[in-house]
Design a protein around this nucleic acid. Structure first.
Lengths: 148, 148
DNA sequence: CCACAAGTTGAAGTGAACTTGAAGTCAAGG
DNA sequence: CCTTGACTTCAAGTTCACTTCAACTTGTGG
């Protein structure tokens, strides 16, 4: 394999991002990433695509669906390569979501001790089986954190 | 609808558990729950089945797959109706798993501030894209918590 | 006694996020 | 040049956890 120049093949992109080539093609079909084509019809990716993939992967870890990620990415400037501030702004929106997820799991853990820990595990009476609705928010903007 | 006697129809079970009848039948096909049949071939569930469903549902919230739940339930005594201690023992195994999930999200949140917060979001260098492998443990027993 | 709600079955459908396969084309080192 | 590995497309397959459907049969209040 020759020197890695300014553009990357799909294989190189895959290796560096840890995302399977099949997944990358799938993303490309969905419009999440894009590429230039060589005269022989092969994909060539610009390096900023790596960051985009990092964003996608991390967003997934936060629990976003590809559809939500698509929406988020649509908020990036289209006229220039996104800079740090752009990425930062986007990912800042995750924080409340993350916090909510953490809070929910913590509540579950705490209830586990008192409620399941005692073996009761009764529906209704027990908050364990009364799931606080999962945070489902669309678009950007703050996510509502509901109390207990 | 006549008085709720000692056995429950699938509809009653559904209403009390908040789980759709179709899901209950699906669970029954997978062997997660079972029922007696009336002369007319309708299902009748004993009340302890409610607790079993509560367990299943809660285990799902903790992130277990139905297959894992199947395994866990297999550890219950088959000769008698499980008591509080039985359920308690089973669900105690969730704690480490929950803790691990919480810890992972917290790490993600903290890294978010320093790493994505600054806009770097670089694969490899950034721990965000180096996901600590998700806890995947089989059967009971303590789950290893890996440090950062 | 009968209408109608609630129950039955097995097969097929759903949606998310990919993966796999077949049948080829392209690129680069020896 | 030529072999070999990387790449191409598009359709179909996979997994998980259900839901929906069609075509019945049961059970119950009035």
């Amino acid at each position: 394999m020759l020197a890695t120049m300014t553009e990357l093949t799909i294989g190189e992109l895959s290796e560096r991002s840890g995302i399977a080539t099949s997944a990358i093609r799938y993303y490309e079909n969905r419009g999440l990433v894009w590429s230039r084509r060589t005269p022989g019809n092969q994909r060539r990716y610009e390096r900023p695509m790596l960051r985009r993939l990092a964003f996608i992967r991390t967003a997934q870890r936060v629990g976003l669906s590809l559809e939500e990620i698509e929406e988020a990415l649509a908020a990036l400037p289209s006229n220039r390569t996104p800079n740090k501030a752009d990425w930062s702004r986007l990912s800042r929106g995750w924080r409340p979501r993350l916090e909510a997820q953490i809070a929910q799991l913590e509540r579950l853990r705490d209830t586990l001790d008192s409620c399941i820990g005692c073996g009761c595990l009764s529906l209704r009476r027990c908050s364990l089986s009364n799931p606080d609705d999962v945070v489902a928010e669309r678009g950007p903007g703050p996510v509502l954190l509901e109390g207990r």
